[in-house]
Design a protein around this nucleic acid. Structure first.
Length: 446
RNA sequence: GCCGCUAUCGUCUAGGGGACUAGGACGCCGCCCUCUCACGGCGGAAACCGGGGUUCGAAUCCCCGUAGCGGUACCA
């Protein structure tokens, strides 16, 4: 089995393309297959070094590798021209100057009939499509469909300037590369009979086809920027883990059984099959990815998560903070907002201060807490901190919440933070007392 | 317009004639846990697009309709 996947040469790796790449990869890796990477760029200028680089980086981040390539259609121009000449010589193709207007006029004159041109010896090269019979597309996920040849146009396979059209180029490249399985988006389905016709004219074999359902945004329209993340790069920047992205993408258009949701990459390689790919388009739901990402994130060891967060945020010395925030975040991006006050001091949140420190019992609460913590003997650890703080609550006659929230705001500046005991323990004696004192002064001033 | 594909909870899906009072997951709602936010646990609401067939029996098969999507380029 030889499969090949064609990333879009137009920049970021779109989520839909990523899924196509993933399925090709799983298929090859699960079946001893060879994976070929080829960039579809007959349209010359499309593959810029920057675009390619971002695609390769996205694939690498996902862990999707390949055995051969990258190759480029544009590098194969001579071979394409040779095939075109051969098809003309064999009478399978002809040169014609007919353009869109002529084609339209022809179709208006011939009711329900594909365009048929005449040999003119110049112009673009068109393939001669048979006037009868059907071209059958056999698709692993969709079954068989017969297309009436008479309805198909004589399609252009090379421009007047000699450059090949995509359909010709893929077919030639796939045939030359010995590609046996073509797994691509369903937007190519209606084009498949054209490619099969080219294969037949060339005498090349037809590979096994599988067309994947398209991906849509929440509104059922094509996934676009206004739906949020649309590329693998976007997901990476949003703090998703590659293993979660792979798991989620695998499930968009494919299901293994009645209840399994989590699959490791190795399990996916083993379990994935084209036969179980669904036919209906799927909607990309970032909320579910988010949930799944949180699950993966919580399964990481503290050391591993720390390493990823340090790479993601560019900060170091995060381990202790990571340990107490791990089960509060769903993406890497959520870490810093929750933990920054440990490193940069209390954040400035006037609303939180007014709402919590402005309460009448706040002064009393901070006073009790200050004296309790001030008397706490070393070591300054979570266990001792919790003990004295709970005692302070007891003495104050207030509810735990009435004491802890002012303390939380005094220490972090906000009403949302890791557990209060963990926070106090991590901050350390000096910093904790200093922040409490600072908050008390601020309160008196106000 | 023509050709084609698709159609199960809001979303991802399981289902391939009786096991379906249609299963799981996300999200949502409620309860529990609780120092905030989360996490976690428990429970709940929520779907077979419509109409005809076939059959003793249809979510499952066939036809029609409807809707969505794709193709119809000297784009990929």
């Amino acid at each position: 089995m030889r499969v090949r996947f064609p990333p879009s040469p137009t920049g970021a790796l779109h989520i839909g393309n990523a899924r196509t790449a993933l399925y090709n990869w799983l298929l090859a890796r699960g079946h001893d297959g060879t994976l070929v990477l080829r960039i579809e760029d007959t349209d010359r200028e499309r593959s810029t070094p920057e675009n390619e680089q971002s695609i390769f980086e996205a694939l690498e981040w996902l862990g999707v590798d390949w055995d051969e390539g990258p190759t480029y259609q544009s590098a194969n121009a001579e071979r394409h021209a040779e095939v075109v000449e051969q098809l003309i010589a064999d009478g399978h193709a002809y040169r014609s100057t007919a353009g869109p207007e002529e084609v339209r006029a022809y179709k208006e004159a011939h009711e329900s009939r594909g365009f048929r041109g005449a040999e003119e010896g110049e112009g673009a090269v068109r393939l001669r499509v048979p006037d009868e019979g059907v071209t059958v597309v056999r698709d692993v996920v969709r079954g068989e469909t017969a297309f009436e040849n008479t309805l198909l146009d004589d399609l252009v396979i090379a421009r007047a300037d000699g450059t090949p059209i995509y359909h010709l180029a893929v077919v030639v490249d796939d045939a030359d590369a010995g590609i046996t399985h073509v797994v691509r988006g369903a937007d190519h389905y209606s084009n498949t009979p054209k490619q099969i016709l080219i294969q037949q004219a060339m005498g090349a074999p037809t590979p096994v086809y599988a067309h994947l359902p398209l991906l849509h945004g929440p509104d059922g329209k094509k996934l676009s920027k206004r739906h949020g993340a649309t590329s693998v790069e976007d997901l990476r920047e949003a703090g998703y883990l590659p293993e979660a992205v792979i798991n989620y993408l695998a499930l968009l258009g494919w299901g293994y059984d009645e209840e399994t949701t989590f699959h490791t990459v190795d399990e996916l390689k083993e379990r994935f099959s084209l036969e179980r790919v669904s036919k209906a388009p799927a909607v990309f739901d970032e909320q579910k990815l988010r949930w799944m990402n949180g699950r993966y994130l919580r399964e990481l060891s503290v050391d591993e998560l720390t390493a990823r967060l340090e790479a993601f945020t560019g900060h170091t010395g995060l381990r202790d903070a990571v340990a107490i925030t791990q089960d509060k975040i769903s993406t890497l991006a959520e870490f810093w907002p929750l933990a920054r006050s440990f490193f940069e001091g209390p954040v400035d949140d006037p609303d939180a201060r007014a709402k919590v420190l402005g309460k009448p019992e706040a002064t009393d609460a901070l006073t009790q807490v200050r004296s309790a913590l001030g008397e706490l003997a070393e070591p300054w650890e979570q266990e001792g901190v919790e003990r004295v703080l709970r005692d302070a609550v007891e003495r104050s006659g207030l509810k735990a919440k009435q004491v802890f929230q002012p303390l939380r705001v005094a220490l972090t500046g906000t009403t949302v933070s890791p557990g209060i005991f963990e926070t106090v323990a991590l901050l350390g004696r000096d910093e904790t007392l200093a922040r409490v004192d600072e908050a008390s002064r601020g309160r008196q001033a106000a």
